[in-house]
Design a protein around this nucleic acid. Sequence first.
DNA 1: AGAAAGTAACTTTTT
DNA 2: GTTACTTTCT
Length: 764
Amino acid sequence: MNSIPLSQQARPAAPAGQASYLDGLNPEQRAAVEALDGPVLVLAGAGTGKTRVLTTRLAHILATGRARPWEILSVTFTNKAAREMKERVGRLIGQGVEGLPWLGTFHSIAAQILRRHAELVELKSSYTILDTDDQLRLMKQIIQAEGIDEKRWTPRFLGSLIDGWKNRGWTPDRVPEDQKWIFAEGAGQKLYEIYQARLQVLNACDFGDLLLHNLTIFQNHPDVLREYHRKFRYLLVDEYQDTNVAQYLWLRLLAQGSHNICCVGDDDQSIYGWRGAEVDNILKFEKDFPGAKVIRLERNYRSTGHILGAAAGLIAANRARLGKTLWTEDDPGEKVQVKGIWDGEAEARYVGDEIERWVKDGRKHSDIAVLVRASWQMRAFEDRFLTLGLPYKVVGGPRFFERAEIRDAHAYFRLVRSSDDDLAFERIVNVPKRGVGETSVQKLAQVARGAGISMAEAARMLVETDEIRGPARTGLKVFLRDLDRWAQMAETMRHDELAEIVLDESGYTAMWREDKTPQAAGRLDNLKELVRAMGEYDSLEAYLEHVALVSDLDTASDGDEVSLMTLHAAKGLEFPLVFLPGWEETVFPSQRALDEGGTASLEEERRLAYVGITRARERAVITFTANRMIFGRWQSVLPSRFVDELPADHADASSETGYYDSGPGFEGFGEPANPMASSYSSPGWRRYQAATNEGRKGSPPVIEGKAKLIDSAESSSKWRAGDRVFHDKFGYGTVRRADGAKLTVAFDKAGEKKVVDSFVRELP
DNA sequence: AGAAAGTAACTTTTT
DNA sequence: GTTACTTTCT
């Protein structure tokens, strides 16, 4: 791993100040690059040159001879970020970066470390990394084995619970008392123990374990930790605001050596709280790392003044933040556009039209991104783009390695490699159909468990007896014979050749060839692509290790396409023109955030909105609709509170059509209109509804007296404060405020809600 | 065992 | 609207 020729090691220290890589850095960036000693936190706002600082700092450490390439630990969150850093450092120091063996994601580096010390946590260094699918199936087995009702206590719930515990650095014995009761009347911790024991038998670990085992090793074996203290002279951490507790503990342990830890991040862009990320980590950095320097990067090189102003105004509503003020020397540019639209289809049509206009003006499709809160929102845009013939690509969509056919194929390969991989065995014994149904598999599992052997071994025994008969028996016999044969071939054959043979001879490819569903062809293509990708690795092991930690294959096609993606996927990217559709309550902020997480998760939604706006360089267009199809039902929806929070100075709600206005200062529902936005205050909502509805036919359908916005809007005085009403979903309630069609109702059970009057009726 | 039909549940976001 | 899962039937 550390095999770089001596000639490529530390280059002679360049006199500081003359180093060309420092040219063009602003004073703050330069300070962040040059502050090499002790802990440093770089608060890098959106578009302030974060990656540049990170890579230049790395180059600087090398160029000044402070450390050699393998003495620097650089961690990122995603593989993409790691790749980008490698590339850019390579360009800066003008040589290959194979010499940076410790640049990678938290998970890949933890996996490397774990391989070297696996025996210290009772694993073999050949351990496999389970994907979420395997994990869930394990959970399910355990829940069933323990006789717990899996309807009430789903494997998925247990999975995310255990995952959460791991993210907080809790091994089964450290789970706090009150947490144990979250699952199945106190069985949670016991199930966690059983799960870990199963993993150990399988010589496997899940994503969370990679970090957690590292922690266990470091805590129980100070000598090992010291080894890494000596090894890592500098630590660099990207996206620090996204670290969870386990990652934080891991970093803190490692930093005890040199104390030279530099974390780069932006608390305003912390959007992974739902996955265990702790904004707190970045908020308390100075406390955790005494003597830390904090450097703020606030000069933005990406967006226009208005875009920054709109984003700043929005994020100012958050309380838990360190506070930064982005500024730019660029033009103010044009204000952020905010537009209300009738429904989702019309929204997609509008976005499509705007895109065509932009392109007609000589700009490129690839300048444009459409950023949505959740992936289900993409379909409307895909539909529309397809009809218009607009070239587009979905970024971060269905992941290659998560597709069923790829997982099936991997299960075959894993099984050929080691026949005791029960999870793989179970996955594909009967794919394609071999007559081995559920009952046979149950029997195998039971025997295997009882005898402490693998399911493949159990199968070998049982096919010789009468325990399993009929088609299951012959099917298993053939399957076992094939496995043996392939295992033998593996000794001599190239792994990608073998892969092809396994897939063919097992009947797996044939299964898809005979499948007549439209996706079948794509699946066969994926399998071909899989075999091709395998060829790029030296061995099956190397390949499997890689895919376990990577979610996507490099997709090279950089055509001239509009990018369609979720807001999460957009972090770190930028586009001249950005569309932000779906800014409605319950969509964005999402219902889930509204229901569960309280203020914290609402603030996270707001940060997501902030991330969205700050992706735009020249122009940002926010849209919201009055009606949206959610869960297959038409619902009337209200503009997002984030729309109200946009400062009128930087956001423009007036629109060219007669549609009307809403938007900044849209008279937010019963509350005093935003004073900053008074110029926008207007009784626009009703006019907007009336106007739009007139221009539209048919959609959304008017169902069962619902969605009759027009009627209800016009009969504005049907309800008054104090009236008792009934709502299908929320039950009985008392009207608190009535503002045209919009009611604020205090429901007896559901609490205070804002609803449109067509959804309530008189008491039955 | 396997296919068809009917049902619940649900949609974030990723290593 | 979809998908994953369960029940029912052959």
